[in-house]
Design a protein around this nucleic acid. Structure first.
Lengths: 202, 202
DNA sequence: GTCTATATATCGATAGAC
DNA sequence: GTCTATCGATATATAGAC
């Protein structure tokens, strides 16, 4: 196995990523300073530039990783299904994975859902393309359910966005010590998604 | 009628509000400078301080107004109903008003949904209280529908947040020149909300 | 109520010693 | 790879002339 090509695979770089992720998600990119990030890691701001070329590069590194993780999370969930799984099963797996990610990895989720506007123009375009592809993968499932007569949806695009956005919202209120466990939250949202596509339950 | 008490009711102050609202919503509070706002109005940054004491005061003014408008928008919609309207009718009116606001006044909506964290601690607390009250007013409607047997909801809190958040999301994608008119979007979301509370349609 | 000028602070980023 | 020192730009906000 070839060694990682970049300096950014050091242990310190990972500490920087973790600190930056938490603060970007909590306070926002613009309100977070390089000095803030450095202090969390226990170094000075100038030392950050031994690991990343700029503040924006840290944001892009985190954003790209988060979106790749989100894709991988969905792919894993769908890959566990039988190849011929019906749309109802695929939709349930997608929504459960989506909600689980937004509850379990809320810093990454919040970053992707509120800090894309701070990226450079070039990076912003790439991020939006990834987001559109993710949205499309859900729409494809709903389309299949409509085509098979399993789902009844008056507007596929609105249903797609509604299901995604209600799940995305979980990252803003879920707390591990709250009333509902993650698996209960996922199960609730699966029910709501199936209701939205008018899948007759039971 | 007594005259408005504050200097902040001048025409220039209103221009400042409009410019700040657009830029805070589009670029974020931290990324927007007083020079940016002033330039939009056609004055210098120092002149802004003849109308507002600080940048944060502008944000709070806009936030408070937006949340009051959101409340008034809901109150107007509910007041138009018969006093004895059933929960289904109240829910439909709430969701329609909620979505209409988030489509029609997207700058205000985006501000309330993404810039509260930039408020001072005292103002942030007040904003969160207003947001909680708004959320509660929807939960009360759903509770009534569950109590009357009209709705079937396995978790009222999750259903409340899901309905609010999918409607809130409209402010991020709706465009006046898009495929769907506002009234069509509202009608779609009313259907989705009724499906979520398992109200049997037709 | 607007302006110019400026105070004061802090930002991202760099230079160079160790 | 870390540090101290600092650069140059820019932030919010104020002072005072007009």
């Amino acid at each position: 196995m070839p060694q990682a090509v970049s300096k950014v695979r050091s242990a310190t770089a990972d500490e920087i990523r973790q600190a930056a992720l938490e603060q970007f998600a909590q306070s926002g990119y613009e309100a977070t300073t390089m000095r803030d990030i450095a202090a969390s890691v226990g170094i000075k701001a100038a030392s950050l530039y031994n690991h990343f070329d700029s503040k924006e590069e840290i944001l892009w590194d985190l954003t790209r990783s988060a979106m790749r993780d989100l894709d991988a999370n969905r792919d894993d969930a769908l890959a566990r299904l039988a190849p011929a799984a019906v749309p109802r099963v695929k939709l349930a797996a997608f929504v459960s994975a989506h909600v689980d990610f937004h509850a379990e990895r809320r810093h990454q989720a919040v970053l992707v859902n509120s800090q894309l506007g701070s990226l450079s123009q070039a990076h912003h375009r790439k991020a939006v393309a990834l987001r559109d592809a993710y949205e499309n993968s859900l729409r494809t499932i709903i389309d299949a359910g409509v085509a098979s007569g399993e789902f009844t949806v008056s507007d596929v695009q609105v249903a797609t966005l509604a299901i995604l956005q209600m799940g995305t919202g979980v990252s803003f209120w879920f707390r591990p010590d709250g009333r509902l466990r993650i698996d209960q939250v996922c199960a609730e949202y699966v029910k709501l998604a199936l209701a939205i596509v008018r899948h007759e339950i039971q």
